[in-house]
């Protein structure tokens, strides 16, 4: 911890020496953050804008924009809330941003073309999908070291780790499979064929179900992770929309497993799915080409990134209503809340 802090301070110092103009700004932010903040902060990756927008859900506005490298997409906050990890697809790395200073403090060796990644529940290991190489790279977060690679199907993308840390699930887009990887042996132990172009998967917090979306197949697969078999397939039908336009991507499940929110891409809607019966409860109209989202730590809100309309839609989870849209950077892709 101390070494990390020291590194941050060193980096900050170096940055300040390099860009004296940045000094005032840096100090201003430090002062701002010196006051105890109760507000939740969401970090939004802007794929085209090469930036991460910081959204304050108390003020319901964007409070800062952090410059990043090229093509930031996959985004997550470390479990201690200190760092934001952003996958930079065109820079072949994962940028590490300090959540206190909003400054870049380092990189992780992600392997080429990282898009999505998953942190294991301990927060110590990070699994990255390398789309161009049909590989998954395993990274020790503290040591910033690649521990190994696993061969998977063509164009791996969606990554999720079971709540017991034992299984990593990677979905590959052209192979159209979910690959189950044993996290202790780094071996593929099972494969399940899914609808065309699976892009994302998420576990229920009790590990009882894995939800995986197929963008081109237009469906949501409910998988039993223990048997690695399909329990149910959820289809989406929206009056007035052709089925080709319904392209499920991001999934967010509430902690109690009772509700799932599925982003439907160019359908410009988020489907609310019953966690128990798997019936579609309703469709929420959001911005254009909705990608991925995250819950605020108190699960009051779900923020989803709208990839074409350059905003995030704020969904009130209890009332299942869109309550606000907040302007962020250019072509937002993913959202990650800091836990505190």
């Amino acid at each position: 911890m101390q070494t990390q802090l020291a590194r941050v301070v060193r980096r900050l110092g170096a940055t300040v020496f390099r860009q004296t103009a940045g000094l005032g700004f840096g100090l201003a932010i430090l002062t701002l953050l010196a006051t105890p903040a109760l507000a939740f902060l969401a970090f939004v990756s802007n794929e085209k804008g090469n930036s991460v927008s910081v959204v304050d859900t108390d003020k319901m506005e964007t409070v800062a924009a952090i410059p990043t490298g090229q093509r930031p997409r996959g985004i997550a906050v470390s479990h201690d809330g200190k760092f934001v990890f952003v996958a930079l697809g065109d820079d072949d790395t994962i940028q590490v941003i300090d959540t206190a200073t909003f400054k870049s403090v380092g990189e992780l060796p992600s392997g080429p073309d990282p898009e999505q990644f998953a942190l294991d529940p301990s927060g110590k290991t990070l699994y990255v999908a390398n789309e161009n190489d049909a590989m998954v790279t395993i990274i020790d977060v503290d040591k910033k070291l690649a521990l190994g690679q696993v061969s998977v199907g063509v164009e791996p993308e969606g990554m999720s780790v079971s709540p017991d840390s034992k299984t990593l699930v990677c979905t590959s887009e052209t192979t159209s499979m979910a690959h189950f990887i044993d996290t202790s042996t780094h071996e593929v132990v099972g494969n399940l064929l899914l609808g065309s172009r699976p892009r994302f998967s998420a576990f229920k917090s009790d590990g009882s179900e894995l939800w995986a979306t197929s963008e081109v197949g237009g469906e949501l697969a409910i998988i039993d992770p223990r048997t690695r078999t399909l329990k149910a397939r959820v289809r989406f039908e929206i009056p007035g929309l052709r089925s080709e336009m319904i392209q499920p991507v991001g999934v967010n499940l509430t902690r109690d497993g009772k509700l799932g929110f599925v982003s439907l891409g160019p359908a410009n809607r988020v489907a609310v799915v019953d966690g128990v019966t798997h019936a579609v409860i309703k469709y929420l109209l959001v911005g254009q080409r909705v990608w991925h989202g995250d819950f605020s730590p108190d699960e009051k809100y779900l923020l989803v990134a709208n990839g074409v309309s350059n905003d995030v839609s704020v969904i009130d989870v209890a009332s299942q209503k869109v309550v606000k849209s907040i302007q962020v950077g250019e072509l937002p892709w993913g959202v990650a809340f800091a836990p505190n």
Binding site: V154, T174, T175, H179
Partner: peptide
């Protein structure tokens, strides 16, 4: 090649 990568699993 792409088919064979998938084929490897099936």
């Amino acid at each position: 090649d792409d088919n064979n990568t998938t084929g490897h699993f099936v």
